[in-house]
């Protein structure tokens, strides 16, 4: 009789950021095994506001929320995807979300690239690995990734990919690009820290 205890799996997280209406929730929903859940950011705001005395714990009337999804890889490994709320009003949430994150997908819309700048700035400054995903609404590709790279001026090693937030396979590919990028950086850091070649 298998009467083994349920064990708590190891949990990792990836953030999905970008301007309002750029496709964050759609992206999370395309790949999540659960219907994306939404925790009321107002609840969060009140809680954190009391914790950090400088934030007035006013009851927010906003319905802006922290969306998240989940992918279970095995009974011992789970990935959470967090759609980040707007940085202007929920900046205090970002440090919390970024802590320990594998990395971030910054979704950009080429018609309003500037909307993605706060997220790009944030992850660059915090040294969080990120990729830029250009959401091709309705399959329209208005610009190439090279044009976007020039426009947003991110480092050459930051991947920039065209993708479709509604297509599971496309989101999956983008996730893989991010994890590969984060892994590459972690390996480089490991080599630098140990002062030798990477283990075979």
């Amino acid at each position: 009789m298998p009467s083994e205890r349920v064990r708590a799996p190891l949990a990792l997280k990836i953030l999905v950021a970008g301007g309002f209406g750029v496709g964050k929730t759609t992206t999370v929903g395309s790949i999540s095994e659960i219907e994306p859940l939404s925790t009321d950011a107002a609840m969060t705001e009140v809680a954190e506001g009391i914790d950090a005395a400088e934030l007035t714990p006013h009851k927010s009337e906003t319905t802006a929320a922290l969306d998240f999804g989940r992918i279970t890889f095995a009974d011992d490994l789970v990935l959470y995807l967090f759609g980040t709320p707007g940085q202007d009003r929920f900046a205090f949430m970002w440090d919390e979300l970024a802590r320990g994150a594998v990395g971030a997908i910054v979704i950009a819309d080429t018609r309003r690239l500037a909307d993605s700048f706060p997220a790009l700035d944030y992850f660059e400054q915090r040294d969080v690995p990120f990729v830029v995903g250009i959401n091709c609404f309705d399959g329209i590709r208005l610009h190439t990734s090279a044009q976007v790279r020039e426009a947003v001026s991110v480092d050459d090693d930051v991947p920039i990919e065209l993708f479709d937030a509604r297509a599971r396979s496309s989101v999956k590919d983008l996730l893989a690009v991010l994890v590969e990028h984060a892994l590459g950086r972690a390996r480089t850091e490991l080599v630098a820290a140990t002062g030798g070649p990477p283990p075979a």
Binding site: L10, G100, V179, L183, A186, E189
Partner: peptide, 28 residues
Amino acid sequence: LAVGVTASSRLDERVHLLERLLEGVRAL
């Protein structure tokens, strides 16, 4: 309650975890 592990600050553990995650994502 028992709590599962989250991202490690140890680089070697982090590399190992990311390898597992990458494998998992590719197999989705």
